[in-house]
Amino acid sequence: MSKREIKFSDETLALIQRIIRRYPEGKQKSALLPCLHLAQMEFGGWLAPETMDYVASILKIKPIEVYEVASFYSMFNLKPVGKCVIEVCRTGPCWLLGAEDLVRHIEKKLNITVGETTADGMFTLKTVECLAACGNAPVIQVGETYHEDMTCEKTDDMLSAYRNRNEVVTHWDKKHVKAQ
């Protein structure tokens, strides 16, 4: 990894300061989860140890407190990922309605298995637990977007759309930092 300086943009820093003010004095640790989402947004979709140390310094907590939280929650990637993380729901209703076929299809199409990243660094395939969209199963999440009622054909279209856009897609979309 390049040794570039890890620093949030001014806009994001301002947002973090606003978020910290939501909690009582001295309870700025509460802002940790939003901060980690924002860190993933700014620093390539994953949390390097240096990124976590940086978040710790901003919230004035111990790095260890960040590690243990980041490793607990499934949305935080502790290893580098592709520009788009394809998250296929694998639980209950999505499974009943063919999530498994979708995963097989994507694996074949992208020539990777679950947990891997394509050689060009475009896609990472992940399976996730129930996304609370069971009525439109099977569901694939990419960034903040839910792709519902998926079929293999629709998945192909979805993949090519992301490939054409060729942008880093994260759960916390950059446009929301500007909007706030």
Partner: peptide, 29 residues
């Protein structure tokens, strides 16, 4: 009244009320 939204990080257990409280405090759920 001030009302705020707080995002989680991906953990079913945070639906349990005390785990949710821990998570809201920025801790493991």
């Amino acid at each position: 009244l001030d009302l705020y939204v707080q995002p989680g990080g991906g953990a079913y257990i945070c639906g349990e009320e005390t785990a949710l409280i821990e998570s809201l405090e920025g801790k493991r759920g």
